[in-house]
């Protein structure tokens, strides 16, 4: 069942103080979301281990220590730093140098929670396979079940600049849709989910594949597409940073919109429509 065809239960009438429960998220989407969330977390954390092996990023076909890095993390003695372009940030205690680690990304954020490139790679590639399989299954499902068309693709009027601006202002003020309008995803939500599903995750997979010297022989056009192996590595890293940003806002929105209701929806599928907030300035 999909969001726009959501059924309103009878035990919670429209006059209920809490609003009616609607079945908003189908079982395949919930299962995929769980697997995908697990994969993304493990991939980000094991990716951090791999990044720690050489915490410098380059543009172009090749790049190593003697070449110009557009991003570098590390330490000068006991001072951690993150350098992006010409700008250097002191990150002592967070990145580069903490009381517990001298690696670019500290062990609290890596898998495994000690430095082992070999083990980090084992985790990364196992969950990369799981990610590829699960997102492929999800794409097939969302096309066949019309989840994509009915729930995720925005209507033209939803993505007009004025409508989007109104949505952004409402989100910044933490005001969310209520009643009937809350049955489906709002336009910003749709764009964010589409961006992750059709943008960031496929891009991360393709740039990951482009770093494989063996697959470079099979698909040399991928190197041309991304501008070389080191550019692909940089884009892969930017994808992971963008995914971190998405997760942060995603979790923030869940907290703001009502964590219990949102958690119930992603676990059981049932979402309680929020009542209109009246008499608010």
């Amino acid at each position: 069942m999909t969001a726009n065809s959501a059924s309103v239960t009878s035990q919670n009438g429209e006059d209920s103080p809490c609003g009616p429960l609607v079945y908003r998220i189908s079982l395949p989407v919930r299962i995929w979301h769980g697997i995908n969330a697990l994969c993304i977390f493990v991939l980000l954390m094991s990716g951090a281990t791999i990044f720690n092996a050489h915490p410098r990023l380059y543009w172009g076909k090749a790049g190593a220590n003697f070449d110009h890095a557009w991003l570098a993390a590390g330490r000068n003695g006991e001072a951690g730093f993150l350098r992006v372009g010409q700008i250097e940030f002191n990150t002592t205690g967070f990145l580069g140098h903490t009381p517990y680690s001298t690696k670019a990304i500290p062990p609290l954020l890596t898998i495994p929670n000690y430095y082992s490139l070999a083990e980090g790679r084992q985790w990364h590639f196992f969950f990369a396979w799981l990610l590829v399989v699960s997102i492929t299954a999800f794409l097939i499902y969302s096309l066949c079940s019309k989840h994509l068309r009915n729930d995720l693709l925005p209507r033209w009027k939803e993505i007009s600049p004025s409508r989007l601006w109104k949505e952004i202002v409402a989100h910044v003020r933490l005001r969310f849709a209520s009643g009937h309008a809350a049955k489906g995803y709002n336009p910003l939500q749709k764009l964010a989910y589409l961006g992750v599903i059709f943008g960031l995750i496929p891009l991360a997979i393709l740039t990951g594949i482009t770093m494989s010297p063996n697959l470079n022989a099979a698909f040399p056009w991928l190197l041309d597409l991304f501008g070389g192996r080191q550019s692909a590595r940089s884009i892969h890293f930017i994808c992971s940073a963008a995914l971190c940003l998405f997760i942060f806002i995603h979790l923030l929105m869940i907290l703001a919109a009502g964590p219990l209701n949102e958690m119930r929806a992603i676990i059981t599928g049932w979402f309680r429509l929020p009542q209109a907030q009246e008499n608010r300035p």
Binding site: K61, Q122, W123, F125, F126, F127, A128, W129, S212, P213, N214, L215, N216, A217, A218, P220, L223
Partner: peptide
């Protein structure tokens, strides 16, 4: 650790399947 090695096995089989045995690495 044993379960994780399944990823490595899938990578070897998958990459050997996708890559012609004589496909050349890019030359510059």
């Amino acid at each position: 650790r044993k379960v994780l090695t399944l990823g490595e096995k899938a990578t070897l089989s998958g990459q050997r399947f996708l890559t012609d045995r004589n496909a050349l690495a890019p030359e510059f």
